[in-house]
Design a binder for these strands. Structure first.
Length: 410
DNA sequence: GACTAGAAGGGGCTAAGGTT
DNA sequence: AACCTTAGCCCCTTCTAGTC
């Protein structure tokens, strides 16, 4: 489809004779009656508050159409002296230079007549912008277009290996390349948010399924498969043995926490609980005999005292033996804490929300519900949960914690 | 020589349209 | 829906012709 009242068609010579670009031009007339939607619309409507650009490739119908050769579009010093082969960006520069060679020269004269708007067509015949009706409105535009579509892409992004022909495009890409990165818990990386969301839906469903399986078979855990490492806090909370010592690499552990933070989910617990893990990778467990109350660290001691008094208040003679022998409450893993609470609940009264917590193992919100449930727990249980909460959020523990890995409570 | 105006080059920003 | 590419617009700088 040709453009309507296109008046003139200036064709630049494709060939440069003797290295000198000759600006001879041919005038052509293209006569068809076709209205330009852009201009007709703009003439009918009042000027909008925010200026809108015209559609691509719909130049002013009265504009002068200029066809530059590929050489011209790509050349930097396209005006070349036939004597010394020196190139110049502009004809005026060349003409001035020719004076030095005592060659005839002619500077472009300023003209008083009104300059008609120029539009430029792409020299590539197969290109949509080769059609005068789709000519581009400015010279830099057609140059950029020709470079992008038909030129050599010599600018390469170091990060993603994408190539660009226009330097500014390359720079714009380099600014944002690698800044949008989405990482799932399972370690998979995504550059696109939608892909990441899709994957996460799958990954979460898998985690929930694993949690259900975990209740029946504590070994099953998709993160174990994915990381080849145990475990995350919510999985521990599902009731796995404390003899399993999670060994997240520090980097992965903090990364995991960061990811959850970005999801707005169970970040805090994850980070808090990770500290005891680090501690539990410490020295060999001490013999039970060596872990007397006097050797406890202050927090352990305080907690043991609190628990004992709690039991006594509830009518129990004293803390069960298994609790008294354990000296490491503040630095137990989440599993150990839950198990202890569950045991205590079995001794006193088993709270429903503990079961709920276990059932929510893969759900971030479910996990936090376990800690922050607004429901009315049974008498005594609230105290235990509060104590456990305090235990789960201790200051960083000392490096060697005696007796941590003694295993699960009797 | 100083100053001004115009042309050209290049880069940044962003709307529009296409793609995934 | 989000992302990517393309093209239009604008601004700044540089260079040169013309004028005083």
């Amino acid at each position: 489809m040709l453009h309507g009242s296109m008046r003139a068609f200036v064709l630049e010579e494709e060939e440069n004779k003797a290295g000198l670009e000759v600006a001879s031009s041919t005038m052509m007339k293209v006569e068809e009656n076709m209205s330009n939607p852009t201009t007709s619309a703009s003439s009918q409507n009042p000027v909008p508050a925010k200026r809108k650009r015209g559609l691509p490739g719909n130049p002013d119908p009265d504009a002068e159409v200029i066809a530059l050769s590929p050489n011209t579009l790509m050349a930097t010093n396209r005006f070349v002296c036939e004597i010394c082969n020196k190139g110049f960006q502009r004809d005026q520069n060349l003409q001035l230079h020719r004076r030095g060679h005592n060659l005839p020269w002619k500077l472009k004269q300023r003209t008083n007549k009104q300059v008609r708007k120029k539009v430029y067509i792409c020299p590539d015949a197969s290109c949509v912008h080769h059609d005068p009706s789709r000519a581009l409105g400015d010279l830099s535009g057609i140059k950029k277009h020709f470079s992008r579509k038909h030129g050599e892409k010599k600018w390469k992004c170091e990060k993603c290996s994408k190539k660009y022909a226009v330097h500014s495009d390359w720079r714009a890409h380099c600014k944002i390349c690698g800044t949008r990165e989405y990482r799932c818990d399972c370690g998979t990386l995504f550059s696109r948010r939608d892909s990441f969301i899709t994957h996460r839906a799958f990954c979460d469903a898998l985690a929930e399924e694993s949690a259900r399986v975990t209740q029946a078979n504590p070994v099953a855990d998709h993160h174990q498969h994915l990381y080849s490492q145990p475990l995350s806090s919510h999985e521990l909370a599902a009731g796995q043995s404390t003899t399993m010592q999670p060994q997240f690499p520090d980097g992965l552990r903090s990364q995991h926490a960061d990811i959850r933070r970005s999801h707005g989910t169970y970040v805090t617990m994850k980070q808090e609980i990770s500290s005891p893990w680090a501690a539990c990778q410490g020295p060999e467990p001490q013999p039970a005999a060596s872990t007397s109350q006097s050797q406890m660290d202050p927090l352990s001691s305080i907690y043991a005292t609190m628990l004992e008094s709690e039991f006594q208040r509830e009518g129990q003679s004293s803390l069960p033996a298994s609790y008294r022998t354990s000296t490491t409450f503040p630095f137990l893993s989440a599993t150990a804490l839950f198990q202890k609470e569950a045991q205590m609940g079995a001794v006193t009264a088993r709270p429903r929300h503990i079961d709920q917590m276990a059932a929510h193992t893969s759900s971030a919100t479910g996990f936090s519900l376990g800690w922050c449930s607004g429901g009315a727990p049974l008498h005594g249980v609230k105290t235990h949960s509060a104590l456990l909460h305090e235990m789960a959020c201790p200051p960083p523990p000392p490096a060697d914690i005696a007796g941590f890995s003694e295993g699960k409570p009797q």
